[in-house]
């Protein structure tokens, strides 16, 4: 237990940070809960993308830097297709495109590079990132597009009786967060309970052993990348409806990387918990710590949320490299 003290210290510091706005009276309870909910909603989306990331890493050992590019690509596809066909059809078509993309990536990138070192595969996904960025903008265009989910956006006041002023929630935010949470739960079940899920886990544990008992590796990879593609699509649609479909989406989605560092690379639970921690943490930091920093250092605006997740992950790497739920790795010589 002696070695755990840096982790405990970091956790304690985070908790104190969380409690400070309330303790110092800087925020009313109602506003605080609003911020917390906002953070959780973003967090669910991070969890979702991180889940796709963790699945790919588990099953094929690929650190998929292209996750962000996939989110952008999927969102662009939905936004542009929805201009011509109903939204549901656009989503179905875009899903088909993501599956096709998974198939192509398996064929062209993964299969020739099987058994290469992790860093090589990471660089290959860097190539995929470039390609998708260029291809997506060539095919779908490079303006800012809108996705309209057709849900009323007006804020709703809830729990007015409990708190003075109540809590403002955006109905759309709330609904999509539910959808995302449902998807996270569904994927987790799929992975734990179904035969395909078992095969996926077998591949994740040991490629060669799985192959030798007759699990078709390439097939599994296509499935995994398709799932990750679909997850990217959902995240892309939700973010796209909130922020507009634009290049910066790719960067937002990249936050799945610090999330999996925090949660532990190969852990499904870690991706979920990590996503929520980072979602809440960065929102809290932006809203409550941001103004303090701006004042103290005379900054030109906040924007802490751009780096908060990464710096938190960096600290985590220093004190607990295997993440919250990851397995410790022993090098055999």
């Amino acid at each position: 237990m002696r070695k755990n003290w840096p982790v405990l210290a970091l956790g304690a510091a985070l908790l104190v940070g969380l409690a400070l706005p309330l303790a110092t009276g800087a925020s009313s309870l109602g506003f605080y809960i609003e911020v917390l909910l906002g953070g959780l909603m973003t967090g669910v989306l991070y969890s979702l993308v991180a889940l796709g990331f963790a699945l790919i890493f588990k099953a094929s050992g690929v650190f998929n830097f292209a996750q962000g590019a996939m989110v952008l690509f999927a969102a662009l596809a939905v936004a542009r297709l929805a201009e011509a066909v109903p939204l549901w059809l656009a989503i179905v078509l875009a899903t088909a495109i993501m599956v096709a993309l998974a198939w192509v990536i398996e064929r062209v990138v993964l299969r020739p590079l099987v058994n290469q070192e992790g860093v090589t595969l990471l660089m290959a996904t860097l190539g995929v990132t470039y390609f998708l960025d260029g291809f997506g903008q060539t095919v779908w265009g490079s303006d800012i597009y809108k996705i309209d989910l057709g849900i009323a956006k007006e804020p709703v006041m809830i729990l007015e009786k409990l708190f003075e002023g109540g809590i403002l929630v955006n109905k759309e935010d709330f609904l999509v967060a539910m959808v995302a949470a449902g998807l996270v739960a569904g994927l987790t079940l799929f992975f734990q309970k179904t035969a395909t899920g078992r095969a996926l886990r077998a591949v994740a544990d040991d490629h060669q052993a799985a192959q030798s008992v007759g699990i078709p590796l390439n097939h599994i990879w296509v499935i995994i990348w398709s799932v990750a593609g679909f997850v990217a699509l959902v995240a892309g649609v939700i973010w796209g409806s909130q922020l507009g479909v634009q290049f910066s989406l790719a960067q937002v989605a990249l936050k799945a990387l610090p999330v999996v560092i925090l949660g532990g690379f190969t852990s499904i639970a870690g991706a979920i918990v990590g996503g929520l921690i980072i979602g809440v943490g960065e929102k809290m930091a932006e809203v409550f710590l941001g103004p303090v920093l701006v004042k103290a250092f005379d900054l030109a605006g906040g924007g802490i949320e751009n780096w908060f997740a990464y710096v938190l992950a960096l600290l985590f790497l220093l004190v607990r490299p295997e993440g919250l739920f990851g397995e410790k790795h022993i090098d055999r010589v």
């Binding site: 990471l122 990387l257 560092i261 900054l299 030109a300 924007g303 780096w307 990464y310 960096l314 790497l317």
Partner: peptide, 30 residues
């Protein structure tokens, strides 16, 4: 410094932290 405790892939995220932190710092700290 994180490279002393972590290998390869994890380091990618540590260096991304450098990237985003510097983006922010040079844009915001007047």
């Amino acid at each position: 410094i994180p490279s002393l405790r972590i290998k390869g892939l994890y380091l990618a995220v540590a260096t991304l932290a450098a990237q985003f932190f510097s983006d922010w710092m040079f844009a915001r700290v007047k």
